[in-house]
């Protein structure tokens, strides 16, 4: 038997669990094994995958973002209200929000603040802004955005293509680019990054800004799929994104993250949610299924890691 690197094992488990879950769904409902079926299954996974990448970037610098859910909701509200009628205003607001994220990264670094609390505070701020922009559910998706998210691509459904693109882009960005290495370096050992002549503050600001950029994309994708928004549309994303990162083999400390794994983790969690409806079990247990899948997959990881050791 060939020896696998720990990273390969790390990635193997999320891939296997997604495959098993997908096989189970197909076995229960063969009709899901079609272009249409796959699209339906994974449609909502695209925004979740983007939010998971956003969370991953923050986790890579040893921080945690508890405001992702409200920030994606905020982006979705801006997208649904301003993008169709006043695209420039929408772009300006979203760019401003990305700058705010960078500033938060700087603030956390300069004052040595716990990221959990600062982002907790920010979650109230984004939530409040979302309510101000869109007091009651509504808005609409811009024509091109709707067209993009519902495009019928040949052979492979858009949701799958989009997930692959997100994974590849995030992989190049985080694992291959200089900035990505610096970001993960801060998570590993901030002091040695600083000694090597980098500005930890600038890198942290960049990590937060990039994270915000992916959250904004998540909000826009969400509006493209659902065609409307409300201030609470993505609150679940905070916890789902954290779970997705860990499910995909990431760790909270040490800058050990895997972008491809994170996307797969997000897909697995999405699928876990809809899996039960195929079993005809009451939707009451839908959230519970996500919890159970988390536990099982992480348990499997332990089992395999032990065997390897």
């Amino acid at each position: 038997m060939t020896r696998l690197s720990p990273q390969a094992i790390r990635l193997m488990i999320p891939v296997l669990s997604l495959a098993v879950l997908l096989a189970a769904v197909f076995w229960l409902q063969p009709r899901a094994m079609s272009y249409m079926g796959m699209n339906l299954l994974f449609n909502l996974a695209v925004p979740i995958a983007l939010a998971t990448i956003a969370q991953m970037l923050v986790i890579a610098v040893n921080d945690l973002d508890l405001s992702i859910g409200t920030f994606v909701s905020f982006s979705a509200c801006v997208t649904a209200v301003y993008l169709p009628t006043a695209p420039l205003v929408a772009v300006a607001i979203l760019l401003g929000a990305i700058c705010v994220y960078a500033l938060i990264g700087i603030l956390i670094h300069l004052r040595d603040l716990p990221s959990i609390v600062v982002t907790l505070g920010m979650s109230f701020v984004w939530g409040g802004l979302a309510v101000l922009i869109l007091p009651s559910p509504g808005g609409q998706a811009a024509g091109w955005l709707r067209a993009l998210m519902t495009a019928s691509t040949p052979f492979v459904p858009l949701a799958i293509i989009a997930s692959v693109v997100i994974a590849v882009v995030a992989h190049l960005l985080v694992m291959r680019s200089t900035l990505g290495v610096a970001i993960r370096g801060i998570g590993g050992n901030a002091r040695s990054v600083a000694r090597a002549g980098w500005s930890v503050m600038k890198i942290k600001a960049a990590a937060y800004a990039l994270s915000a950029f992916f959250s904004v994309l998540a909000g826009m994708a969400l509006v493209g799929v659902t065609t409307s928004a409300d201030a609470n549309i993505a609150l679940r994303y905070t916890l789902l994104s954290i779970a997705g990162v860990i499910l995909g083999g990431g760790e909270f400390v040490g800058g050990r993250v895997s972008p491809v794994g994170a996307v797969i983790g997000a897909l697995t969690l999405t699928l876990a949610g809809s899996f039960l409806s195929f079993l005809r079990i009451s939707p009451d247990w839908q959230i519970g299924a996500q919890g159970a899948v988390l536990i099982i997959v992480l348990g499997l990881r332990l089992l395999l890691a032990r065997r390897e050791a």
């Binding site: 609390v117 600062v118 505070g121 109230f124 984004w126 939530g127 007091p135």
Partner: peptide, 14 residues
């Protein structure tokens, strides 16, 4: 209003 209240709560926490 609810929106301003949330924003101020967050800013005060920070």
């Amino acid at each position: 209003g609810a929106g301003i209240r949330l924003i101020l709560t967050g800013l005060i926490i920070i």
